[in-house]
Design a binder for these strands. Structure first.
Length: 923
RNA sequence: GCCUCCGUAGCUCAGGGGUAGAGCGCUCCCUUGGUAAGGGCGAGGUCAUGAGUUCAAAUCUCAUCGGAGGCUCCA
């Protein structure tokens, strides 16, 4: 009897051995090809969840595979350790953020070790340590010196809940993306990075193997558009009002102008008669949150300023309005309104009874467009009309200069000095300062109005530890005098850095986390950069993934990579283009969702009042086990809000209000039960603590072992899609590893082998290798494992048939174990040892795929008649057209349909990559 | 409203112009000295729907329906 597979006995043992023998230390070795595999670093929230496992263990498998293929692999791990949760813990539970963060890191580090991943812990980087944020500060200073960082006034997103500003990228639908609380727009002086300067370069994804969806999201976010700028002047005072438009061909159709309520000029141009109305409107808008302002199908509102502007193209006088459908944050914050050809302007014109003038007349319409007949704006192609000298120009569907009418108008605007071609971006500069404590200090001081950078030799500006976390809503730095008071003249900046700044360059810090003379060691960078494969969630598409690209380009432009480039040249590697982008290949994993759960089946008794029952007793019973004579209500709890149960009673939803003093009986929960313990039905959805569908990886490792959990995660989902959790399916990978273990422990067979059967197994093995290679290459981990399962089944059948000899068995097992090693590193290492091979399986060469061995020798020739398969004939693989057609036509099946008559045609399809050859006979 | 991706067995997913596949689950049988288990046999699919291209369509094209994600008063 063989020893059964006991994951716990072997996993911790090997994790310790790997660490003691420095198996995963990655060192620069210019004689070997490098591979920098990176997976997004976690935020130390306290517990590793299954999502981390799902993101990291397949990436680990792939990194291990690259290593066995002969690459020198760097696969580091660290923590993105600044952020609000630590500060909130400090405020609500009086734990210092340092303490909270470091305790969590300790815990998560242990959990990460339990994965058995090949992380090189000597390269760990933690963004909240002074050794790290010294360089975040240093980068900030460099950016400031090069004009990339600047302090400016802008309308920013302010979160009342968090008492801080947020970057545009952190605001979704007018709400903070983390807390879901609404934000308001506020004019504030803040620190920014000039990411807009890089907008065009960020739109260029040449040479980047990134998911199409991410490239599209970034492209949309940057929002480049082409058009023209023109300047209108107010009739009184001649104030210039610059507008941006993508449709300069409709300039003659401008019948009014609209300024954003926040526009600078509003105050200056408003007439006394309109002042009260305008101020009232502005106050109303200011009180609104972004959410309210973005409500769909909202009636368009606005107020006349009393002022008029002169349209430069035709000297017409048009009224100037303010309205909140014009955003101060986009373009110039002012528009020329062309109601005939812009839907928003059309709606506003109708609502305010403003004139509409057609200036693009479609050519193929039965009735020409007229103001009176229009029910919506027309934004299609046509001929310019009512446009003076431009009349007759053809406006197409094309955008920008490609549109003949737009092209002609831009030329004309430039020739007459009335305007010029312009490109506009939706992207705003990156707001980098936060009014919080737990972030990297901004190394700046104020001497009166003057901004003074902290000298390099005083970096890092350290966060003071002895701060008071009173729930004032303000950052404790703002009332910590030893911190903010540098001397009598100078006051220190108390805002801190957005954590996304810290994570924009962490891939560089891993290169040399202990380097104290530079953010990273030039020689390490010369060897390892750029990141070859980056894996992580798609939710960072327009935040982290855009920021880190921007960061990389700035570093390149300000010379931070110069030493690394020189080192590369010394080693004969061309640095050209290496530092343009941080990550060459990007892949996003999907999300593991909570599985479906049945609600408790409950018996409720009490009084029925109107439509609902006031229950005095609720008992959970086995499904449908209703005692005879039970007179209350019963059924599955489909939903529960507080103490109200929604009971599915034979398809009908009934409401049961559980009284405060009611007796609750839940047999599987011992002790006194309460209403909160009643479980309601759960559909497939995101895992979250509040929904009670969180899967704890520690428990799974305890129950099944890390290798089984790894394989389950890789096997049961399409990694790039994710899917619902179903622990039942874990038995598949579990049984598979058990079987391989059994086969290995049973030892070499005593019987002699059957050459034909061995040849067949060998063929299947090489076919399997090909599929695993492809699966790992393409992040299709599930197929790589399914194929190994199939091979195991074939091997097992051959062993049972006593068709395999000892020598062949050893050779096959050597390959099977190596193929398994990236997926299930512990069991592979253990079997490798037990079969008598040298430590470690993870440094062995990856089995070489042999196409000759994989090739089939005989195949079934499929005989089809009119496209329907009718018979098969065993033939050699390399069968020729004539011979195949001959055999097919002579076959009994073909003759049955031909009945002696000659066929209309016979089409031979040679067998390729695994498919059988065919002959289709058309009768 | 726009953009992207996706509809294949009960579930999770491969495949992809040429006989419909895997794992789990399920049926039945065997084992009960591997036992919160093992072995064997098997059932199960008009590949979302409709049309087109083709000798041949699950696969390519178009339309429709359904799902997921992203953007959205962007001038």
């Amino acid at each position: 009897m063989t020893e059964s597979y006991q994951p716990h006995d072997i996993e911790v043992k090997w994790q310790q051995k790997w660490e003691a023998s420095e198996l995963y230390r990655s060192r620069v070795d210019w004689d070997k090809p490098k591979h920098y595999a990176l997976t997004m670093l976690p935020y130390p929230s306290g517990d590793l969840h299954i999502g981390h496992w799902f993101a990291m263990t397949p990436s680990d498998a792939r990194a291990r595979w690259m290593r066995m293929k002969g690459y020198n692999v760097l696969f580091p791990m660290g923590f993105d350790a600044f952020g609000l949760p630590a500060e909130q813990a400090a405020i609500s539970r009086n734990i210092h953020p340092w303490k909270w963060t470091y305790a969590n890191i300790e815990r998560m580090r242990e959990q990460l070790r339990s994965m058995g991943a090949m992380f090189d812990w000597e390269r760990e980087a933690i963004s909240c340590r002074p050794e790290y944020y010294k360089w975040s500060e240093w980068f900030f200073k460099k950016f400031y010196e090069h004009g990339v960082a600047y302090r400016g006034s802008a309308l920013v997103n302010w979160s009342e809940t968090l008492q801080t500003v947020l970057a545009n990228e952190q605001v979704i639908d007018g709400k903070d993306e983390r807390t879901g609380q609404p934000v308001i727009h506020k004019m504030m002086e803040q620190w920014f990075f000039r990411i807009t300067q890089y907008a065009d370069e960020l739109l260029d994804f040449a040479g980047m193997d990134w998911p199409e969806s991410i490239k599209i999201m970034q492209t949309n976010w940057i929002g480049r558009s082409e058009g023209a700028r023109a300047t209108f002047h107010t009739e009184v005072g001649g104030h210039p009002i610059q507008i941006y438009t993508t449709r300069p061909d409709t300039l003659w159709g401008a019948t009014f102008m609209v300024l954003a309520p926040e526009h600078d000029l509003v105050e200056k141009i408003t007439t006394d008669a309109q002042r009260a109305a305008v101020e009232h409107y502005i106050d109303e808008i200011a009180a609104e949150t972004e959410v309210e302002r973005m409500m769909e199908h909202r009636e368009k509102t606005g107020v006349f300023t009393g002022a008029y502007a002169i349209n430069p193209v035709n000297d017409e006088k048009v009224p100037i309005w303010i309205a909140d459908y014009v955003m101060v944050t986009y373009g110039t914050g002012a528009i020329m309104a062309v109601p005939a050809h812009d839907q928003r302007d059309f709606e506003f014109a109708r609502a305010q009874d403003l004139p509409i003038r057609v200036v693009i007349q479609p050519e193929d319409m039965a009735e020409p467009l007229t103001e009176a007949a229009m029910t919506e704006a027309y934004d299609g192609p046509g001929l310019m009309v009512n446009s003076g000298a431009m009349d007759g120009s053809v406006s197409s569907w094309q955008k920008g200069r490609k549109n003949p009418a737009i092209n002609r108008v831009i030329d004309w605007l430039e020739a007459t000095g009335k305007g010029e071609e312009a490109v506009n971006y939706r992207l705003r500069d990156w707001l980098i300062s936060r009014q919080r404590y737990w972030g990297g200090p901004i190394p700046m001081m104020y001497d009166g109005d003057e901004i003074v950078p902290v000298p390099d030799d005083e970096l890092p500006v350290e966060l003071p530890e002895d701060v008071d976390f009173a729930p004032t809503g303000r950052s404790p730095l703002t009332y910590h005098e030893p911190f903010f008071k540098v001397d009598d003249a100078r006051r220190r900046e108390t805002d801190t850095l957005d954590t996304f700044m810290c994570s924009s360059w962490y891939q560089l810090r891993y290169l040399s986390p202990d380097c104290d003379t530079a953010p990273f060691d030039a020689d390490e960078a010369a060897y390892w950069l750029p990141v070859d494969v980056y894996t992580g969630g798609a939710e960072h598409a327009v935040m982290h993934l855009l920021y880190t690209r921007f960061f990389t380009k700035v570093l390149r432009d300000i010379g931070v990579y110069d030493d690394a480039a020189a080192a590369m040249r010394r080693h004969g590697r061309d640095p050209d283009g290496v530092f343009d982008e941080p990550m060459t290949v990007l892949r996003n994993q999907g999300q593991v969702l909570g599985g479906e759960r049945q609600g408790d089946f409950a018996l409720c008794s009490g009084r029925v009042v109107g439509e609902r029952m006031l229950a005095e007793r609720v008992e959970v019973v086995d499904w449908n086990q209703v005692p005879a004579g039970f007179e209350g209500w019963f059924g599955e709890i489909v939903h529960r809000t507080e103490n109200v149960l929604h009971l599915n009673m034979a398809g009908l939803t009934q409401f049961v209000e559980v009284l405060p003093e009611a007796e609750i009986v839940i047999p599987h929960i011992v002790g006194a039960n309460n209403v909160n313990q009643l479980q309601h039905h759960l559909d497939i959805q995101r895992m979250s603590k509040s929904k009670g569908n969180v899967v704890n990886p520690d428990e799974l490792v305890e129950k099944y072992g890390a290798d089984v959990v790894r394989c389950y995660l890789m096997f049961n989902f399409d990694w790039q899609k994710g899917g619902p959790w179903n622990e039942n399916n874990i038995k598949g990978p579990q049984g598979w590893l058990h079987d391989i273990w059994e086969i290995a422990m049973a030892g070499a067979p005593a019987n002699a082998g059957d050459p034909a059967a061995e040849r067949d197994i060998s063929r299947k093995l090489h076919q399997t290798i090909a599929v695993i290679n492809r699966g790992l290459e393409e992040f299709s981990f599930n197929t790589a494992i399914a194929e190994q399962m199939k091979f195991k089944n074939s091997l097992k059948a051959a062993l049972r048939a006593q068709a395999i000899g000892a020598e062949f068995w050893r050779d096959v097992m050597s390959q099977v174990i190596r193929l398994l090693a990236p997926f299930a590193p512990h069991i592979a290492e253990e079997m490798w040892l037990r079969l008598g091979w040298d430590y470690s399986v993870h440094t062995q060469p990856w089995p070489e795929y042999d196409a000759d061995l994989a090739r089939e020798e005989t195949v079934d020739l499929v005989v089809m008649v009119n496209g329907k398969p009718r018979a098969t004939i065993a033939v050699t693989v390399d069968i020729e057209r004539e011979r195949a057609q001959e055999l097919a036509l002579a076959s009994e099946a073909a003759q049955r349909f031909l009945k002696g008559a000659p066929p209309k045609r016979a089409i031979f399809i040679p067998g390729r990559n695994g498919s059988d050859p065919k002959v289709n006979i058309v009768v």
